[in-house]
Amino acid sequence: MALGTIDRTAKALVLTVQDYSLFSWRALLNLFTPPRYIPDFLVQSDIIGVGSASIVLLSGFFTGGVLALQSAATLSEFGATAVTGRFVSITMIRELGPVLTGIMVAGRNASSMASELGSMVVTEQIDAMRALGVDPMRKLVTPRIFACISMLFFLTVVADAFGILGGGAVTVFMNHQNGTQYFSMAWEHLRYPDIIQGLVKPLFSGYIIASIGCFYGMRTTGGTEGVGRATIQAVVTASVLIIFVDFLITQVLLTLFPAP
């Protein structure tokens, strides 16, 4: 009985991974053949990029502030409060900026993609689109994936910048340290590999968020309850995958660009 359940679960998991691989591969390939829906790409870029800017900006700012607060106490024990800027900028750019932005955007956009497409599936709008001769993969999925990849890149830059600013604000106004020193440490110790690491990650996170959101949305079954289920699955899977892929990319990039 238990073995049977494990067997069925394992098969279902393998089947889901297979379906997801084919789904996301097809969505990527659609970029290289017409028709391309540029207006849909722009609309999605606006929804994802402009729509998520405020939450990314705020979460980045406060994360930078928290980093400065937490590090100041520890660094002061070693008389190294001067390196707060370096600590905040490297942590934000290499790790927290990309991951936090990814998770914030996943919570907002993977859920909205899954619920929007899921609702379209259960109300037969996707079938209607196919019946009207339009490929929903090209019209709905591909623009979302590429809009999410490109917007997450810029949102991560925004999160990094506001994180460093937040750290600076805490350093100057709460820890009463020198602001010039903070920003100069933040800038001078930054290396290209740090920036590369920070800007490669959102490309993968953007792809994960949109492809997982669309995948669960497009395979919704079971009416409105199914839409809710698809939304939860999309957010949970996207968030976990973002952190997992972040770990893999960090490992690869640290091998390629070892610390000096």
Partner: peptide, 10 residues
């Protein structure tokens, strides 16, 4: 094709 509930795009 005319769908059961119309299937208009909301």
């Amino acid at each position: 094709m005319v769908f059961q509930e119309g299937a208009l795009f909301d």
